[in-house]
Design a protein around this nucleic acid. Structure first.
Length: 542
RNA sequence: GCGCCAGUAGCUCAACCGGAUAGAGCAACGGCCUUCUAAGCCGUAGGUUAGAGGUUCGAGUCCUCUCUGGCGUACCA
């Protein structure tokens, strides 16, 4: 539809040359009476042409040549908007389109042949995933789905740090509990991992090894065992949400493969680093940063920046066209360093999209729950999925703009989950399935022969929403905004529920019933496709 | 102190590079089930878009300042 408008404007611009000087924009107005598409070009041109916008609009319209089977009317409104109204029969063409393309409707090959890597969750294996990690997990997977929908070949990746201090503390936490189980008196430090799972792991080790590990280095078997056990649990939790990764990367491997060492010498060779106070510093000031920062501590251990840069280099080496990192806002200060480091080495950082989402405030019984893995103060993701189901969790985390803080009221989520909008969408789908079951008995078969009969307000509104889907998916995906899909689907479901209430299929005249059934089937497909991208199921019955 | 993100209806949040009368859901109130699922539909009420300036044909959206909240600001990740 938009294409058609662009086409007729292009034709008109041969005569009205000023049209080629501005960017044409067509938007779908909020208010129904403003038509199917609206164009503000006349207002954009007021200054340039020094004319009244309505006058300009008049001139433009009189030079537009269009097919009356496609456009019903064009009018000037308000300060100078040009509003376009399509014919009902043209609007209805979308049904044929959807029924032909089915699960491919809304997908595009715009980015076909391009490869993307989406890195998300990336929680270090120091404890179970919490509700806080849920937002990251859901956003990452949905973004990956969206990129696939617009043609990318997507790799889902999970990266974790298993080389630093954090993991050492984890290993020693297990060791201390192990010694405790063997009857030794210990003084468990406050800043060690307090969770019960540490004791369980220690228990397993007692069973497996007896007391033979009394003198084992905490960074040896203890760390190894803890990492393995915890990671298994993390994978299980992810699976409950329907998440599967293609690749797991970790920090240790980077060391083992000499990537860290190599990077360090590259920085040195390029004169981008220097030694001071026994530590190695990277010249961030030279790279546009505020101050130089340490990349190797005086202890000889790198700070997170070095492996992070090395890790991103491996991603560049793998040849992606797009590299997405999903981070919580606590990392917002860290990624510019990583990008600056990469840029200094001539990597094209425009390929990197860092998606920062704001924190989730968890409320329980009206109180804010501060999550801390260390202090064992958390609500696990498993617990939540168990209580409300994967669909609700995924929808909930998807429905808000990533740049907004969000509140998650656990008490409310558990108790009033029936009021979650996800059920509104699923119900629309289930209703259509129910119609399709009933209609078989009545011998009504959908048909696209008489779609011009769909002229009622509710039918036209539903058609409009269906027409919007492709654009909506493309826009949401290119801008990494999953919540737009939720908003769209809620509008679509609302349009359907109205149609359902006012336009009956059973009992209508045969041709009309067939056309309406086709409309319902098309709606079902779009709901299914949209929910699919969100990772939410489309149930046949509720 | 400085930096990033935010502040929109009682609550949770939308609003497409600045567009027309700022929209949904929940909560509240009033209607609609002999007919394809009432997890639905229709209606009522609810707003100085935190506050003050500025930019322009036009500002919730852009700029400046103030207030409030979240996250950073390490030789933690």
């Amino acid at each position: 539809m938009k294409n058609y408008l662009e086409k007729i404007f292009k034709e008109a611009s041969q005569k009205l040359t000023f049209l080629s000087d501005v960017e044409l924009m067509f938007e779908i107005p909020k208010t129904i009476s403003h038509g199917d598409f609206s164009c503000n070009v006349a207002m954009m041109l007021t200054k340039k042409l020094k004319k009244n916008p309505r006058q300009i609009a008049e001139e433009i319209i009189s030079n537009l040549k269009y097919d009356e089977d496609i456009i019903q009317k064009i009018e000037i409104a308000g300060p100078g908007f040009i509003n376009f109204f399509f014919t009902p029969s043209f609007m209805a063409k979308v049904i044929e389109n959807i029924l032909t393309q089915k699960e491919n409707y809304g997908r595009t090959d715009k980015y076909k042949g391009k490869k993307a890597n989406v890195e998300f969750v990336s929680a270090n294996p120091t404890g179970p995933l919490t509700v806080g990690h849920g937002r990251n997990a859901v956003i990452g997977d949905t973004v990956a789905n969206m990129l696939e929908a617009i043609g990318y070949e997507v790799e889902r990746e999970y990266y974790f740090n298993n080389a630093g201090r954090q993991m050492r503390v984890l290993g020693d936490s297990v060791k201390q509990r192990y010694l405790q189980l063997l009857g030794k008196k210990i003084n468990f430090p406050e800043d060690y991992y307090q969770g019960e799972y540490i004791k369980e792991i220690a228990g397993e080790m007692v069973k497996e090894f007896g007391d033979s590990l009394k003198n084992e280095n905490p960074e040896g078997k203890f760390k190894e065992k803890a990492e393995g056990v915890i990671f298994n649990d993390i994978k299980k939790s992810l699976k409950l949400l329907g998440l599967e990764f293609d690749t797991f990367s970790n920090e240790n491997t980077l060391f083992e493969e000499g990537k860290i060492e190599a990077l360090l010498s590259t920085f040195n060779k390029k004169n981008l680093s220097y030694e001071k106070d026994n530590a190695v510093w990277l010249k961030f000031t030279k790279l546009g940063g505020e101050q130089d920062k340490v990349i190797v501590k005086s202890s000889g251990e790198p700070t997170y920046r070095l492996p992070d840069i090395a890790y991103h280099i491996t991603k560049f080496d793998r040849g992606y066209d797009l590299i997405v990192d999903v981070f919580g806002s606590d990392h917002a200060a860290a990624y510019p360093d990583v990008l600056a480091g990469l840029k200094a080495l001539d990597y094209d950082t425009d390929k990197v999209k860092v998606l920062i989402y704001q924190f989730v405030t968890i409320l329980e019984d009206g109180e804010v729950v501060k999550m801390s893995t260390r202090k064992a103060n958390y609500v696990t993701l498993d617990e939540l999925v168990d209580e409300v189901g994967s669909d609700v969790v995924r929808y909930f985390f998807n429905m808000r703009n990533t740049s907004s803080h969000m509140n998650f009221d656990l008490t409310l989520a558990k108790k009033q989950s029936d009021e979650n909008p996800v059920f509104y969408l699923q119900y629309a789908h289930a209703r259509i399935c129910s119609i399709l079951r009933t209609v078989v008995e009545e011998n009504i078969i959908s048909s696209v022969e008489n779609l011009n009969l769909l002229v009622k307000e509710e039918e036209q509104q539903l058609l409009k929403k269906l027409n919007k889907y492709e654009e909506e998916i493309l826009y949401a995906s290119e801008n990494f905004e999953p919540h737009r899909i939720c908003s769209y689907l809620e509008e679509l479901a609302a349009a359907f529920h109205k149609f359902y209430t006012f336009c009956r299929i059973l009992g209508s005249e045969k041709k009309l019933a067939e056309a309406r059934l086709a409309l319902a089937e098309a709606t079902k497909i779009v709901l299914q496709n949209g929910l699919g991208i969100l990772g939410v199921t489309a149930p046949e019955r509720m």
